[in-house]
Structures are given as structure tokens and as C-alpha cells.
Design a protein around this nucleic acid. Structure first.
Lengths: 94, 94
DNA sequence: TGATATTTATCCCGTACGGTAAATATTTGT
DNA sequence: ACAAATATTTACCGTACGGGATAAATATCA
């Protein structure tokens, strides 16, 4: 699989966030080093963050998101919408 | 002023996030201790987080948000929309 | 004012994170 | 497919701080 479509949307965990970020970055063909330079963040941090590090620091996470052109929106949780239809989601664990 | 309306929406900084969270919690008349119990988070952490601690850990931040019934949405940054009109925004620092 | 909520201080263990270089993994060209 | 080029991960080390428990100090509310 080369490039699935990035699934922007609600985040439940650090892992979710990391995966989304990595997908977004890859899609734009940017390297960790590039982001590192643009955002003044270490590649080490970025690497761990994208792999779902729970203990990544908030400030750096926000900076990484901004650097990548991503926006964080907070809103009252919506009542889980059913789901249109797709075959291979990737929900995984309950 | 007792309770302004909580401004859900885009987050730019840890401070923004903390303020939003605190406003949301207050609006629901919940105490730090209550959230602490529900989310298994220390009141110390919650207090610092709501006051904008940049170094708060991502995992705990997400947990706090969930516990408060808030949802995090990530999306490509929208091109800054003009602004309808209001008097006292609170932009502040450049 | 009394009750309730939030902040601060103290003690302390565990680890985030920045360089840097080496080890791996992934991508690309032919 | 294979090798070369490029990207990502991992190991080391040391400094610095996160955050848990708990109690005392403040602040806020009714």
C-alpha cells in the first residue's frame, strides 16, 4: 500500500494522533528532518511522537502539529455517529 | 461576570487548551477532585494543565479531555477565516 | 464567615529530550 | 532484483523536570 487517504478527525489516543500525523506528513512527502528544521523539534522527538508516545510534551506536540499545517479543534464530544460503510476499518481492540 | 460562553474551537497553545478546559469544567460545575476521581488523574496535574502547562504529558491531557466529555479533532489548517464581528476577542500577543 | 475548591510546597523516583553516531528500514534508480 | 541513496530508529549520557502523595496556604463561593 502506497498512500491511503489520511483520516482526519477525532482523536482518542496518543497512538491515533501519531498515526494521523505520520500519515499527513508522508502524504506531503516531508521528512522528519525537514519538520525538525521548520519546527525546531528534534527528529528523535518527532519519531517517538509519531509512534504514539504517551508522554510526549503538550507544547511540543502542538508545535509539531502547527508545523505540519494541522489544526487542533476541541469540541463537546458528539454522540458517536453510526458509520456510513467501509470494509477494512482497523478498529481493532474493544 | 459569572459564566461566559465557552469558546470551543481551534487551539493554538497549551494556554488556550487549558483555559478552554477550565471554562468547560466550570460551566459544568465540576471540581478538580471530581475529574481527578473520574479520570484517575491527580488534582495537581489537572490544576497545572488547566493553567497552561506546556510540558503536560499528552496521554494525560487526552485522558483529561475525555473525562470532561471533550473531543479532539485534527484537521488540515483552514485558511484563517476573516471574522464576522465581535468586540472583545482576546487575540493578545502576536 | 464557614465551607469548599484550588494552588503551592516538599520529598522523590522515573523518564523526557537533546546531541551524535551507528544500526535498520524504506525508497529509488537502473 | 540488487545496490545505492535516503529516511527512521535506537543506544548512550546527562541534565532537568513531570507528577504522585500529602499537608498547608490561599482563593473562591454560598
Amino acid at each position: 500500500m502506497a498512500h491511503d487517504q489520511v483520516q482526519y478527525g477525532a482523536i482518542r489516543s496518543a497512538e491515533d494522533l501519531g498515526k494521523l500525523v505520520r500519515a499527513h506528513r508522508k502524504q506531503r512527502k516531508l521528512t522528519l528532518e525537514t519538520i525538525s528544521g521548520l519546527g525546531n523539534l528534534s527528529t528523535r522527538f518527532l519519531s517517538e511522537f509519531e509512534r504514539g508516545k504517551e508522554t510526549a510534551e503538550l507544547g511540543k506536540v502542538l508545535k509539531a502539529l502547527r508545523t505540519l499545517g494541522l489544526e487542533v479543534v476541541i469540541q463537546p464530544r458528539r454522540v458517536a455517529v453510526p458509520k456510513p460503510s467501509s470494509s477494512h476499518e482497523g478498529e481493532g481492540h474493544a
